[in-house]
Design a protein around this nucleic acid. Structure first.
Lengths: 356, 356
DNA sequence: CTGAAAGCGCTAACAG
DNA sequence: CTGTTAGCGCTTTCAG
């Protein structure tokens, strides 16, 4: 019998129609040159008439090589992973792969399940952005099963997988330097109280830079639990007692909280307090003031990660490399230089009240 | 020979190990009851020892039924589609399907390609969120090929596919009513000048509601081209000449522009001008004032769409239904009732200057 | 209850 | 250059 595949022509239909064997059809379709031109014609004609298209899964099955790359990310709701995935999609396609995208929903357990699913699917390789918890269960599992993979974002150097991530430390140090140079002597670091390597890196790098440079700066640290409102409350309490000259928000949503709290309290930004955010977002160019922020090199992360994965897929690599992609920095309006203190006209509506 | 599949046990390995046939292993694994308990034990033991897991793709191939559902969305960078996809993922999994996610990048051509790819993959069904252009090329192609699919967001009623989308008209009318009741007599509708059915629906529904209710209201309409800055410029020019009592931003990024332009001009919101936005975002609760907005029922859209798709996959439906999911409305701080005009303490810093 | 056989849609090896 | 044969890893009769 010839078909079971509801209403779709198989390679045999085409072979029949063209009066050749399935093998020949396969050759023509995969561009093998050793086919008589006349037959090529016939096959192509049959293909067109029957609207035939190779079933990539069946094809992969036979070739014992799936042209699928797994992508496991913590979530899809935030811009960051959306962009990352999007970029990966483009790269994968260009390299002849399809993506199997799945979200771990920040759950270790789910991450583990997804790793297994990718394995079941016999994906050629996997790109994993681990959940926040740093136990690296997914990576461990992948190692044990012998999957080929690259770790991305939120990862520490790992000697069994290549890792590529934003250079949090450097970016943070740069902000520290900028702030110090701009004459800020009292800065608040605002973050979330969750286990997250990158956040901790941002904090320690900032502090180290200040110490190292010998800059005179008081650095406060405020960490809150998950919900946005807790952070807002904590920040509000903090402001009741202290007035730094600048706030360095260590993550995207923190920046939001800072801005809104400023507005609620009629604190003028940047005249009263400057703000720098880690992680840029589209809305930051539309707030007033537009937010000066560290932008993570999402594109580069995707590209390096993919490149490395491909390399590993094609020729097994001996040892793992760890790539830190440099962040960039968008200067907008929310960070002011206390020394020059050039205020733009619109910002002069209220007098600048130097704190302290 | 027994394996080609690098380092993975196949069903035959398990069969050998357990001393039964592959058929029996298959039965055990799929829960067929007619297997002698002793054999079940043996198989399970072998499975565990060999770490065996079914290859779902090979399995699907044989069953001539792929447990994969295709999802084609315009992009992954925005919260909306991220959330939608995420929800779909959960639903699909619960129903025993995997998702094949792909983004059309707002390109008709790509959309078409992806439709074909989904077809090639022999997905059981497809959920398509069409690109902005309304020519419905993807849908047409799917119809022609005979794919089973559901259309989502940005779609008009379509007599060949089920469609589920937010009830833009109703939501917009409700906003119109609210604004009228709150005494707003001059409202600006702010949108993008792109072909987009939903945007147009929002506009016309607003106008119709005003006409129908006989409310006395001047309705301005301002549409700009793509880039955010063009919109900002257009809005700025508009404000140079006119001062409505409220702005209804027809899309998410518009709300951003409005807020920042207000701040730049020291226009107090909502005392001077109120704002309502179509499409909620997390940052809207953190701005000051927090933005009153229409929230799209993403979850419901995903659920209805998936439910419908499943129904169609399982038992072919005779005719297409079009489901409009009601939006909700978050009242926050950016919309003021001109009649009662109860201003909260913090908002009283500046006096309210009634325009006109 | 079980397993041999057939085969999903495709590709690879090799004899012609 | 081509077609036959032999599978990829699985499931499904169906005869025993």
């Amino acid at each position: 019998m010839v078909s079971n595949n509801v209403g779709r022509a198989s390679i045999h239909h085409v072979a029949n129609r063209a009066g050749v064997s399935a093998a020949t059809v396969s050759k023509v379709l995969r561009g093998v040159k050793t086919v008589k031109p006349a037959n090529v014609e016939k096959v192509l004609a049959a293909v067109k008439e029957l609207d035939y298209r190779i079933d990539p899964l069946a094809s992969d099955l036979r070739r014992a090589k799936r042209r699928i790359i797994g992508v496991i990310i913590p979530e899809l709701e935030s811009e960051f992973f959306g962009r990352l995935t999007s970029r990966l999609e483009t790269l994968a396609e260009a390299a002849g792969y399809s993506l199997a995208i799945a979200t771990s929903q920040e759950s270790e357990e789910r991450e583990l399940k997804l790793v297994e699913r990718m394995h079941d699917w016999r994906v050629a390789g996997t790109i994993l952005a681990p959940v926040r918890s740093e136990r690296g269960l997914g990576a461990t599992a992948m190692k044990k099963i012998g999957m080929t993979a690259v770790l991305v974002d939120r990862v520490v150097a790992n000697d069994t997988f290549d890792t590529v991530t934003a250079d949090n430390a450097n970016a943070s140090a740069q902000i520290a330097r900028k702030l110090a140079e701009a004459g800020h002597k009292h800065v608040l670091l605002l973050g979330l109280n969750e286990v997250s390597k990158s956040l901790r890196t941002r904090i320690s790098a900032f502090r180290e830079e200040i110490e190292k440079s010998g800059a005179e700066m008081k650095v406060d640290l405020l960490l809150a639990e998950g919900p946005l409102d807790d952070l807002r409350q904590a920040f509000s309490n903090y402001l009741d007692e202290t007035r730094p000259t600048a706030v360095f928000s260590l993550f995207q949503r923190g920046t939001l909280v800072v801005l809104s709290e400023f507005r609620r309290r009629a604190i003028q930004c940047p005249q009263d307090i400057s703000v720098v955010g880690f992680d840029d977002a589209e809305w930051m160019q539309a707030t007033y003031p537009a937010v000066t922020a560290v932008v993570q090199p999402i594109r580069q992360i995707a590209e390096r990660a993919f490149e490395r994965l491909l390399l590993r897929i094609e020729t097994p690599q001996s040892f793992a490399v760890c790539q830190l992609q440099p962040c960039t920095f968008v200067e907008r309006e929310s960070l002011v230089d206390l020394k020059t203190a050039v205020l733009r006209p619109e910002q002069n509506r209220r007098r600048h009240n130097p704190p302290g």
